[in-house]
Design a binder for these strands. Structure first.
Lengths: 222, 222
DNA sequence: TCATTATGGGACGCCGATGTCCCAAAAACA
DNA sequence: TGTTTTTGGGACATCGGCGTCCCATAATGA
């Protein structure tokens, strides 16, 4: 993995690259994205995230096959490999953000909020694995983020803010940096996802195990 | 990363592919591996582990450059990319095993043994990052391991045995599987190495932070 | 049913990484 | 110093993934 969530990327807002969503940004005089196109597009994006999460360096043919789509069709939607990568990053961000937003981690006791956050993260495990599994995925797609469009406040409450709030309230370990806790949050979640992936952990047990490890570590509680 | 330490690979013994070490296995009628050859060979292997740990998919030219060696020289020592990969895996195993062996994790209280183990693992962080950073690295080099040469008993005491011993003595969490603890052991160590790698954590603080997180998790202790 | 749109697969050229070969220069050794 | 070993870099062919183009076919929808 790498689980490198530097620069709390969840607080960055991707440049409008989501055609089917709101059309606030620029003119979209292209085909109004009929239902068919939207469906194939989403299928490709989902397949890309899923395949790349399990195998970085997967070929475009692999992704097309996973999406049950011809390689030409894939190229028709995403001319470049980089285009596909950027779009998949942006799409995965939206999926993850939506899941996290539903957890309302800025409300309630930090410990419970963290449990909701972990649950939300495990739910979108493959997207997280894609986004943070390889540091380069994010770095290379950084180009598609507008450095000016920083709106860290108007965005989804970040994990980091929850961590800092928890530390301030004496719930999370104040001896280590908030960034470390964030890194470990991703690392533990990723490990849980991976363990389930290879059958080492039952799917339904991932969340509780991750939460348990996050809160107690790996020694026995007295 | 991936931190996939399935099948407790540290208990497997690679097929004799270490020319400069003992010559117990087979006839080695080749050049008796003079000092020069040994040094360049080790330089290449170290560079390969280091570079590949930080960038899977690094090119052979990258590795040669990092080893301060011409690309032809690299090919002279390792004709194939796969050859280099296998040799680097075997070499990294030896380095890691040696470091772990020095920790004598089969002696003393489990908690202290674990602290020594973590210290030893952090010391060879880049080797671990190479070995477990990408599940495929190990899978693909599995071919160079003799399935018959299984000697799980005569080998270095494994982390798993320490974990099981600790669980039996009520020191490590008995509610989760030993395999999960092992996975997390690699994951936390890897995260610490990576954090230091990107300057997020001071080098000297990695070990203590990893130990702290392993033992206590990320919530504040009462 | 008919026109439009989307799809899949094949053919092709391109390019970077790989692996091989060769030779002159540098280093090691006697 | 002279011989042998080792090295680095260039030249070359190969291979696989990528990106483009084209066309017959299937799906959509009016």
């Amino acid at each position: 993995m790498a689980v490198s969530a530097t620069r709390q990327p969840l607080s960055r807002t991707p440049v409008s690259d989501t055609p089917e969503a709101g059309d606030a940004g620029e003119r979209k005089p292209e085909v109004p994205e009929t239902g068919v196109r939207g469906r194939t597009r989403r299928a490709i994006l989902a397949a890309a995230a899923s395949v790349l999460a399990r195998d970085r360096g997967a070929t475009l043919a692999d992704i097309a096959e996973a999406a049950q789509v011809g390689r030409s069709t894939l190229h028709r939607y995403f001319p470049d490999r980089q285009d596909l990568l950027n779009a998949t990053v942006a799409d995965s961000f939206r999926v993850v953000e939506r899941s996290i937003a539903a957890a309302a981690i800025d409300q309630g006791p930090p410990l419970e909020a963290m449990r909701r956050l972990i649950t939300a993260m495990v739910d979108v495990g493959d997207r997280l694995a894609f986004l943070f599994g390889d540091p380069r995925v994010l770095e290379e797609s950084n180009a598609c983020f507008e450095p000016d469009t920083f709106e860290p406040d108007r965005t989804v409450p970040t994990a980091l803010s929850l961590i800092e709030r928890g530390q301030a309230e004496g719930v999370f370990d104040p001896q280590v940096s908030a960034e470390w806790i964030q890194q470990m949050l991703y690392a533990i979640t990723y490990t849980g996802w991976e363990a389930a992936e290879k059958g080492l952990l039952p799917r339904h047990g991932v969340t509780s195990t991750v939460i348990r490890t996050f809160e107690n570590g790996l020694t026995a509680r007295s």
